[in-house]
Design a binder for these strands. Sequence first.
DNA 1: AATGAATGAGTCTTCATTCAT
DNA 2: TATGAATGAAGACTCATTCAT
Lengths: 195, 195, 195, 195
Amino acid sequence: MAREKDENKRIAVLQSSKLLFSSKGFMNTSIADIVRETGMSVGTIYTYFKSKDEIVRAIVEEGWSSLYSRIEAAMAGAQSVQDKLKLLIGGFFPELLQDLPLIHILLSEAIDYTRLEEKVERITDLVFTLLKSDRAGAEGWPGVSRQMLRTGLIVIFLGVLNAVKIARRSSLGIRSEDILGFVEFMARGSLGVQL
Amino acid sequence: MAREKDENKRIAVLQSSKLLFSSKGFMNTSIADIVRETGMSVGTIYTYFKSKDEIVRAIVEEGWSSLYSRIEAAMAGAQSVQDKLKLLIGGFFPELLQDLPLIHILLSEAIDYTRLEEKVERITDLVFTLLKSDRAGAEGWPGVSRQMLRTGLIVIFLGVLNAVKIARRSSLGIRSEDILGFVEFMARGSLGVQL
Amino acid sequence: MAREKDENKRIAVLQSSKLLFSSKGFMNTSIADIVRETGMSVGTIYTYFKSKDEIVRAIVEEGWSSLYSRIEAAMAGAQSVQDKLKLLIGGFFPELLQDLPLIHILLSEAIDYTRLEEKVERITDLVFTLLKSDRAGAEGWPGVSRQMLRTGLIVIFLGVLNAVKIARRSSLGIRSEDILGFVEFMARGSLGVQL
Amino acid sequence: MAREKDENKRIAVLQSSKLLFSSKGFMNTSIADIVRETGMSVGTIYTYFKSKDEIVRAIVEEGWSSLYSRIEAAMAGAQSVQDKLKLLIGGFFPELLQDLPLIHILLSEAIDYTRLEEKVERITDLVFTLLKSDRAGAEGWPGVSRQMLRTGLIVIFLGVLNAVKIARRSSLGIRSEDILGFVEFMARGSLGVQL
DNA sequence: AATGAATGAGTCTTCATTCAT
DNA sequence: TATGAATGAAGACTCATTCAT
């Protein structure tokens, strides 16, 4: 009856659903599955969420913004652009990569409720801005237009997510360290950014 | 004799389904949709395909292998490793990127019938092998293990596909040229490969 | 709390289905028929039964065991073997013969869900045992092996069921009294058992 | 094109269908099954039979009447009523029991096309008539009305068929010899007929 | 607020039959 | 006559959502 109790239920639904959606897929997860997993009744689930769609949306939106606001807070304390970039690569990314279920859902077919584009734009914009100010006043990178760089960041970001997603299925061992290592290698070699 | 099985019909089913699957998703496309789109009867669809799954599988497998065998043929005629790499980046990739519906399906939740991992492994293996022989006898790339390189190629490949997939939805203009341009920029800057 | 699962509905489904199955046959009865007959919705039927098979199984199993346990209870109170036999012939049989729909289903093609063999074996075993103890220590019946007697009981039992089943269709009037009368006549004449 | 060739095809369809119907049941056998089994085309099957129903009907009708006319011919040559009865029990019955597939179909759910009642009536009438003339002018059997006797014969006949049908499924060994042996035992003991 | 039975549109698939070749 | 592709009604079952209790 108290608000706290309610909030706990909401979170429980979110957690169970997240796991289910990420492992079986959104469409292959039924409300009945969530009921089974949470131990709640159908009705209860519908008092916390208007629909199944609503649940994915909440998982993604809340998962993402929690991650995002944490990194923003951390970056606010950073002095140099370099430090900020380091925080991103060393903080945000690894944390995101940790959250496999979120990644799965983000890339899933339920993309309509997921608005991946928005997230991609926001995060790559951030990196883009940082990179630009790192080279403020300077020449940028020869042969690379702004648009191309921006696009490149999107490629890398999505590539990382997708590689992590696929890692489990692939027989070739894809490891997070290698993924991040490669990103750093690229950043250094191509953009001259030391992370 | 009776009417012969009509290859054109098979292809029509494949084409309609491809468009439907790629725009609405595999699970959100019903056989009824395909019936409507092709103008055929349910029964006819089932004389050409054993099941709905079978249809995606055919779309992906045939789409991919046609692409792949074309590039193999082209590469067979190439002399140097450099040329082969160029063919890949300048031939296979752009062609693949053209086939948006295929990319959508490849990355979709119907991944079980799609075996994306296999395709990723095969194509990145190819690139990996080429890169290695480009540096045959030499030192490779300092600070980059083989595994990391391999993983990196996967990241790039998947990133490219996903960026293309998202392009339509994103308001920021993602263009194929930029994507490829960036890949080349990376290849040059980080791997020292001129494409 | 929500509405409770309503035993009456379960029974209503069972009753309607029993009639439908027995008159049109199991395979020729569709869930839609049951829906029409019960006035319930498809979904409701499926909240009470997992599948169509489940429905026949329940009809047969519950119908049979109710019959069987009633006769067992009655026979428990009987003193002599003679009395027990009389109860069987005069109690169980007539009651079973009353339940035409059950007989129809029991003999129907849905035999896989029906396990008629089991029922036949059980009931004929019972009779067999009674007959044996009726003649305990004595010579049995000359020229009739145990196996033959057992088989004979099966023949009679199945014959009775089938005759009842066919009665409705046959223009020659087959009446239950005659069927039972004949069985008694046989029992007396061939086995020397007075019923 | 010659008539002979056609008749062979007709028979082939009948034979294959008989086996299929008897083992899988009428409803569970598809025209496609028959096509597979006969090696003919759907169209061809439909030039010999107007419908699936038609096929069962032909199987039953032709199977039965061939059996029946053979026994009639044999009985025509018999002198005494006794001999005729012996021919029935020793000739017709065993032959019928041999034809398991026919029995299965006769008792199957496709009973609508099968007209089992007719066959039952005809054969039991025959036996009834013979029994009557065996006792012509005499007292018949005390305590057994004509109707009851007639009904009894039906019971026995159907019981025999059904027992044979069930034999395969039952774990208790039901053997044809025992079935026939029991019938003779009954005939002797209850009706005083020596077979 | 919590419950879970009720609902019925929608899913994929099968199959007897027809008919163009 | 033979063939088998074409047809589409019908089948069993699922599941997000509602609503009586």
